[in-house]
């Protein structure tokens, strides 16, 4: 029995993925978007099959036709929504309410679809969250966060992750989640503090710019010098990019670590050690290279980011990883996981 930590490994390379990306992008354009569902399956398969744990890779089993049908339904809903808005019809409210009611059900189905179609060593993942749970987490808590001016947002995030991870299974083995809402609040407070500091800098620049503009206007009745406006805008935009590069990756790393370090698969612990600095470097350099290459660096950028994030994760086995049993096929049939694929929304939670 071998209980050494098993690190996730990602073996994909940018140059390999480039060929897959460009061919599928072209096919998607030539077929006016129809091929995009098949391209998506191939993309997910590329990333799953190049992700290894203990020498075995993951696999994605999603059916492109089902994804295509789901997208058609989603598209028709979007068109219906846009049409009613365009026509300024009172139906908008009806459609908005219908969407709000349908959303938790759709999200739950998409979680089911995603997990049921993922496997490792031939054993599939499952999502068994209840429908009432989905309404509580996505609708009721969302509403509560809204009316408390987002003071409850960290709590809602914690509830969402708990719903997601506590209802996930690998074969017959359940995942458990035990991060507390207080830990989420701590991270969100740090995020708020960082944003406030940036807002102060940006606000001072804005006030300074406006002050100069007003002085110019008062002295001699000249209109505002456009250069003052441009300088102010450059400072604001620069601060926004800087905030995106510094704050975004830091918060992402800390919250991802919190979530995975508090998730277990049966008795096995999961460890995530993402650090902000490499993540900042990867996102900043990806940003520059994607701009310089007019987007052709995208596949390389995605592979770089995926590789770093995957390889931060380790499984600390409590016992042999060969002991997992697949779920009973009859149980899978009654829960209807195979059928629950009419909607596939790729919503990252």
């Amino acid at each position: 029995m071998d209980n050494t930590p098993e690190q996730l490994r990602f073996t994909g390379t940018g140059s390999e993925y480039f060929g897959i990306w460009i061919v599928n992008l072209l096919l998607t354009i030539v077929t006016l978007g129809i091929y995009s569902s098949w391209a998506k399956v191939r993309r997910l398969q590329y990333f799953y099959r190049h992700t290894e744990l203990a020498g075995s890779s993951f696999d994605f089993h999603g059916n492109a036709v089902k994804i295509f049908i789901g997208r058609l339904i989603a598209l028709s809903m979007l068109i219906a929504y846009n049409l009613t808005i365009r026509l300024q019809s009172p139906l908008v409210i009806v459609i908005l309410i219908a969407l709000a009611i349908a959303m938790p059900w759709l999200l739950r189905n998409s979680l089911r679809f995603r997990l049921y179609n993922s496997s490792w060593r031939g054993t599939r993942f499952h999502f068994r969250g209840s429908l009432s749970g989905a309404y509580r987490v996505f609708l009721l808590n969302g509403f509560l966060a809204l009316i408390t001016v987002y003071i409850m947002a960290p709590y809602m995030h914690q509830r969402m992750k708990a719903y997601q991870h506590n209802n996930s299974w690998f074969g017959r083995t359940p995942f458990t989640f035990n991060a507390r809402a207080g830990q989420f609040y701590l991270l969100y407070l740090m995020l708020l503090a960082a944003i406030l500091v940036f807002a102060l800098v940006v606000g001072l620049a804005g006030i300074g710019g406006t002050f100069i503009a007003i002085t110019q206007m008062k002295s001699g009745g000249h209109p505002v010098d456009p250069r003052t406006i441009i300088t102010t805008l450059v400072i604001l935009y620069g601060a926004l990019i800087l905030a995106g590069i510094l704050i975004g990756p830091t918060f992402h790393a800390l919250i991802t670590n919190l979530i995975w370090n508090n998730t277990r698969l049966g008795e096995h612990r999961i460890e995530c050690k993402m650090s902000p600095l490499p993540l900042m470097w990867i996102s900043a350099s990806n940003f520059v290279l994607v701009v310089v290459t007019l987007g052709l660096f995208i596949p390389f950028a995605v592979v770089r980011a995926t590789k770093y994030q995957m390889e931060c994760m380790r499984v600390l086995p409590a016992s042999d990883l060969q002991e997992f049993a697949a779920a009973d096929p009859e149980v899978v049939g009654t829960v209807g996981e195979e059928a629950a694929t009419a909607f596939d929304f790729d919503i990252a939670l």
Binding site: I20, R49, H50, S56, S57, D59, A326
Partner: peptide, 18 residues
């Protein structure tokens, strides 16, 4: 074939060789 990922030969009933 997808890049250099291991390929699977699948049999009926969910069994396969990687």
């Amino acid at each position: 074939r997808l890049g250099r990922a291991a390929r699977r030969l699948r049999f009926n009933g969910g069994a396969f060789c990687e």
